[in-house]
């Protein structure tokens, strides 16, 4: 399943191909960006898993799919739910790992600069099978559609409305923060909460129940929920 790919495909067919090509990254610049990753990850000949998994052959692979690496439950769940690594999903993940998999062990705040992400993705792309050999392989790098409007992030939520809306969440998510089978959503930073909910709303995250729930919440309602859960105490 490639939820992300479908969306990108539609977008790409509308946007002119020249505009897309302009947004390809520069692998040489990406190698410099990659220095931030090197303390945990290896890539290239003889790369091994270290604190993080090795990154060869990343493109087109299901998230959390190396059998010999211990991933967080959150990333495993995302992979099982259909998350695959492509330029678009990597871009969203690299911008804020916790927006794509809340419980990921990758303790990296994220690359806020879109050009740096494009360059890094172009660099990592070198270590996957080449598009020249495999025509249907991923492009080297591509623009994304996951960015959310800074005005949305700036919205101040109404916690009272959030409390009412939260009753729809607490049918499954425990207010105690308990996490068995369904992740905890209490005491998240508001920005992460908003990003995660918009990722479901835009179907960049793969869970069907959450896509449905987030899909009908507007930006104010998501902000209200974020405001409420951010300070919820038992």
């Amino acid at each position: 399943m490639r939820v992300f790919g479908i969306i990108f495909g539609v977008a790409a067919s509308v946007i002119s191909t020249v505009a897309v090509a302009d947004k390809f990254g520069d692998p040489a610049a990406g190698e410099k960006v990659y220095r931030q990753c090197k303390s945990c990850h290896q890539v290239g000949d003889g790369a091994k898993h270290r604190i993080g998994p090795q990154l060869n052959g990343l493109f087109g692979r299901q998230a959390a799919s190396h059998d010999d690496f211990r991933y967080s439950k959150a990333l495993m769940r995302a992979g099982t739910g259909g998350l695959e690594w492509h330029a678009d999903t990597l871009d969203a993940f690299l911008e804020n790992p916790k927006a794509i998999a809340s419980g990921t062990r990758m303790s990296f705040r994220g690359l806020k600069n879109p050009q740096e992400r494009l360059d890094l993705i172009a660099y990592l792309r070198v270590f996957s099978d080449s598009p020249a050999n495999i025509p249907e392989a991923d492009p080297t790098a591509s623009p994304t559609d996951h960015d959310i409007d800074p005005a949305i992030l700036a919205l101040k939520g109404d916690p009272e409305y959030g409390e009412y809306l939260s009753s729809e969440c607490t049918t499954c998510h425990q207010t105690s923060g308990g996490d068995d089978g369904i992740p905890s959503i209490v005491l998240w930073p508001e920005e992460d909460f908003v990003l995660a909910m918009h990722a479901y709303k835009n179907k960049n995250r793969s869970h069907p129940v959450m896509q449905m729930m987030a899909g009908r919440l507007n930006a104010e309602e998501i902000a209200a929920l974020a405001a409420y859960f951010a300070v919820l105490e038992e």
Binding site: S167, C172, D180
Partner: peptide, 16 residues
């Protein structure tokens, strides 16, 4: 994963 999710839901809804 769907089964495990149902277990999580059971805990969630009964406490709700």
């Amino acid at each position: 994963a769907t089964y495990e999710e149902s277990e999580g839901w059971y805990t969630g809804i009964t406490s709700d």
